[in-house]
Design a protein around this nucleic acid. Sequence first.
DNA 1: TGCCAGGCCGGGT
DNA 2: ACCCGGCATGGC
Length: 216
Amino acid sequence: MAGDSELLMDIYQKLFDTYGSQHWWPGDSPFEVMVGAILTQNTNWQNVEKALRNIKDADLLEPMALFKNRVKIPELIKPSGFYRLKTERLIAFLKYYIEKYQGEIENLKHKKTEDLRGELLAISGIGPETADSILLYALNRPVFVVDTYTRRVLSRHKMIGNNANYDEIQKFFHDNLPDNTQLYNEYHALIVRLGKHRCKKNEPDCHSCPLYSIFN
DNA sequence: TGCCAGGCCGGGT
DNA sequence: ACCCGGCATGGC
């Protein structure tokens, strides 16, 4: 539908006007973003910050150092929840990153985004949102990150069907927005910000919801 | 005080 | 092809 592009940009504008720039991803380095992307799976960011703090305080926020000290990971990341599970996922990612790229971000800059995405998805514990978060926020690739809020908002406002899967929703954004890393960055962050709105389901008839004026 | 966070996997139907 | 339980901590 031709109007989808305008609608998506209207929504973006409204969210930006309401909330302003979100300055994502909070983190001092690409590697911190990668680790954070795994730790934040179904987890409040506040808890992830504590885990990242622990890793920093132990001076282990770099691929090789963290891998060599992997026995310490469970204790370090405990505040982020699911810590046994996430320890395995983190180690699986570290092995991939070190064995294939020596833990150097320079070594994957020449890789095509699609190929990189496939490699990330092949790692057990890294699904589409985690992979895309790494691609967008650590590697600055123009990849739209879809999360539960995104699905909820689009679904509630009838822009997608209730049964749309991740790739379909992502394609909807890619097809209707300019191929722009910064736009994707801010847009996803704003949707997450919207998700923290007290109207958790983004009900179309919630008058205090920032999107109310667009759809009503 | 329960509910729920910036998911993903594996097993059962 | 879906559906569901499990995974765990800390904040409001």
